[in-house]
Design a protein around this nucleic acid. Structure first.
Lengths: 224, 224, 224, 224
DNA sequence: AATGAATGAGGCTTCATTCAT
DNA sequence: AATGAATGAAGCCTCATTCAT
């Protein structure tokens, strides 16, 4: 992991802290940035929430921008490990592969909710001070993500009259939209807890719909 | 229009201005808010761009928050008129109705680019000071929008084995994603000008794909 | 006066203040900068001393650096007027011309002590943020000052065996050193008030010594 | 040496360090103070450059001010040794004695450049925290320096009509001004290296001018 | 109504000094 | 003795809002 090595030297002051304090700082920072965006996030609030002295944030991370980018790199690397390390590239059915990813995503959100929300928010970040550097990092990430997801897919199952490129767009947008909808449900006052099985069951209905529309229909009933 | 009445009493100081000055203020404010978000938007920049005295902004709108929400209400009402007033509810084919909406949207962007950008940006607004009030307004808007779009749709054309509710979700997300993609294209350095015909041709390919998947396939070739 | 025109447009906010407040700000700023140098000068102290609100300094001058350079330009222009406007270029005797300058300088110090101290201190300023811009301004000033002082000097009175260039250096350094010594006297606890006549009498002794050494000695006694 | 004794007791923690570390600390401190002045000098930079732990600086020297004054006393004592120990008081010709001092000064700059630059900078120090104490130390130093330089001078060579006290002032100021000019030359981009012979040759031209003006002129040509 | 100066809280950041280990 | 994390006051600057004119 290139970043982790770099981070350990540049941010060694941070990584030498006791883990519990590291986590307090990470959570407080990500929460503040996720809620308010880069510019509106207050380092004062972060140190208050993390319960550290005013100067320490700058002792560990130099400045607000470096803190933000550190969090981004740190999160991206953690997420990459979760995703890329665990996806089964032997599965050549695109819809099944997406299903895997959805499961992984649910895991990640459950395991690192702060981090996930931070990364999502960072991708909408517009502030000139960090936008460029985020885009550079993101370009690579998205390119390699899509490359991986679509790598070695078996197209033989697909209906011949389907425009595969656009069908894939539709699948992407649907899964993204589905994710956003789930996310929004968690913000409702009626939300109590994350029910993974229910979400996956719902997800499967969309995937089934795609299978039903985009794949060749077999005569026998053993469709899935 | 409920809002316009309310606005005329609360914001009568603003509406009593000469129209040209009203427009300068609207454009300057929307531009600043769209570019920088609620908190980072500078009232200084707004008055400079609108060429009015600093105090007047607060004389007309009380404070920054009220200005922002006024702009939101004002824009939403204007867009509603454009959309809801012009859509042909006689068209009972959902895909054709979406096509209408896409065309209307392109018109709106061309006619009121500042306003459109402002509304888009406002929907991503996260600042605590305005978020709640925006969500309240938006819930109503989205509810009534969807009600209208899906009102009196002819379901007889659809394949019986298709889960119509979810298929509609897919269509929504696709059209939204498609819109975002077009939006992003305008930010590329290679972007020169908005080519409506090209965009609609591309949009039609997605709609055609949906028709091909979700609708009953007729034996004769007169599909569309 | 080029600067004054520029200043009136850029710093119009400042120049539109009532004169008494302008002066409070000028004096407080020059005093603080003269005492502590650019970096160590505290804008907090300045506003406290000038009895204005925290934000006003930045409203008038944008930032600390611009304030400093404004003061420098403002002072230099004021001093230039005092010096260059009043020196008698018909006087072709270098020592008499220096005598004029000494008198003018004493006037200036008496009239604008804060300003004089500020300019003196600014010429020792080392801070990277302002050093370059100071040097640019100063180069022109010093070049034109020396050009004026040594312009059209009558060399016929000088001993032929004297290296005039180096003799002039000696005169410069002596007058500068003499000035510093007077300045330091004002800082002593025993100092009560500026006695111009006494200072000029003392100055004359040095000039007389130079006349005695560098000029041809006439046989009759009417030396001066 | 009074100071060394005092220092050995107060700063014994420092003097008990290995010499190499002592020197690292001295050089780093003097360099930082000379470059940035008392207040702007950063103890962080000093410890980084000296490669010691932050706390040690305060362990050895109590605080920044004490460190600065220690360096000043230490340097002054070292310079005194260089100057006062080596000057030949048998030479009773003032101009020749000044020549000796100039040579010694050049030696000192070459031998202890850091220290020389520090002392020069310290003499322009204006910060309230150290100014008073510096002035006290300096008064004694300058008084005793001048006493020594002018001690036992042979006045018989001087023209009777010359005001010796003021002539000596002129010589002082000239030599000081000459030194400053040489110093400034080293800062020019065109400066490559210190040419001692050239500098002394130039210095001699000024001394010769003084001899020519202030001393009785002998009839034979063996002037020097 | 119109102007823009005035206010002061809060923003990020630096830094000498202390202190637990 | 040695380390460097911790502290918090003070630094410059921004900005929504108020208010005298």
């Amino acid at each position: 992991m290139y970043f982790r090595k770099k981070a350990n030297s540049i941010f060694s002051k941070f990584f030498n802290l006791e883990l519990e304090k590291q986590e307090r700082i990470l959570n407080a920072s990500m929460k503040e940035f996720a809620q308010k965006g880069f510019k509106n996030a207050s380092t004062n609030e972060i140190v208050k929430e993390a319960d550290i002295a005013k100067g320490m944030l700058f002792h560990y991370f130099n400045n607000k921008k470096d803190l933000f980018l550190f969090l981004y790199d740190y999160s991206l690397e953690a997420l990459e490990e979760e995703f890329f390390g665990k996806i089964d590239l032997q599965e050549r059915d695109l819809l099944k592969r997406w299903r895997q990813l959805a499961l992984l995503k649910i895991d990640v959100i459950a395991k690192y909710p702060e981090m996930f929300r931070f990364i999502m928010a960072a991708n909408f970040e517009n502030d000139g001070k960090v936008k460029n550097e985020l885009q550079n990092r993101n370009k690579d990430f998205i390119t390699s993500s899509y490359a991986m997801i679509y790598d070695n897919i078996d197209h033989s199952k697909w209906r011949n009259d389907i425009d595969i490129k656009r069908a894939m767009d539709i699948i992407n947008w649907t899964i993204e939209g589905f994710g956003v909808r789930q996310q929004e449900k968690t913000k409702l006052p009626s939300f109590s807890e994350f029910n993974c099985d229910e979400i996956m069951a719902e997800m499967d209905r969309y995937l089934e719909l795609f299978r039903n529309c985009f794949y060749k229909q077999q005569e026998d009933a053993s469709s899935q």
